[in-house]
């Protein structure tokens, strides 16, 4: 039990990821306002990306830009570049899908005059 707690507190990034991920997910499930749901979705997206970037950290390493281009490279002195590359793509695609979601919100508001899930359901019946 104590082991598990100390394991969590030695990884503050992971703890932050878990808190933001679950809280955003909870908002997506329980709130009725559609924009609020999208805010929760954005938090979930960014928290997962945050977790992936935290994997790339090496102690005592610097930014993955080569300091010298003539000497042979010591891989341990630069952060792992691969999670950075993959998350760059994920951020841009995430914001693009967020834009589609917000456009859907705008279209729903024009049609039903509300962004509240329950009111939209009432009007649908």
């Amino acid at each position: 039990m104590v082991d598990a707690f100390s394991a969590v507190f030695q990884r503050p990034n992971f703890l932050t990821f878990v808190i933001i991920f679950l809280w955003g997910f909870y908002i997506m499930v329980t709130r009725y306002n559609l924009v609020k749901k999208l805010i929760g979705m954005y938090l979930v997206q960014t928290s997962v990306i945050f977790f992936l970037v935290s994997i790339s950290v090496k102690k005592g390493a610097t930014v993955p830009v080569l300091l010298s281009t003539t000497e042979p490279v010591q891989a341990a002195s630069y952060a792992n570049p691969l999670p950075h590359v993959l998350t760059l793509t994920a951020i841009v695609v995430g914001v693009a899908t967020l834009g589609v979601g917000l456009a859907l919100c705008g279209a729903i508001y024009r049609e039903y005059g509300s962004l509240d899930e329950q009111k939209i359901l009432e009007k649908l019946e």
Partner: peptide, 9 residues
């Protein structure tokens, strides 16, 4: 934490 490109984006 050293991910400058991700931070820019």
């Amino acid at each position: 934490i050293g991910a400058v490109d991700v931070a820019f984006v």
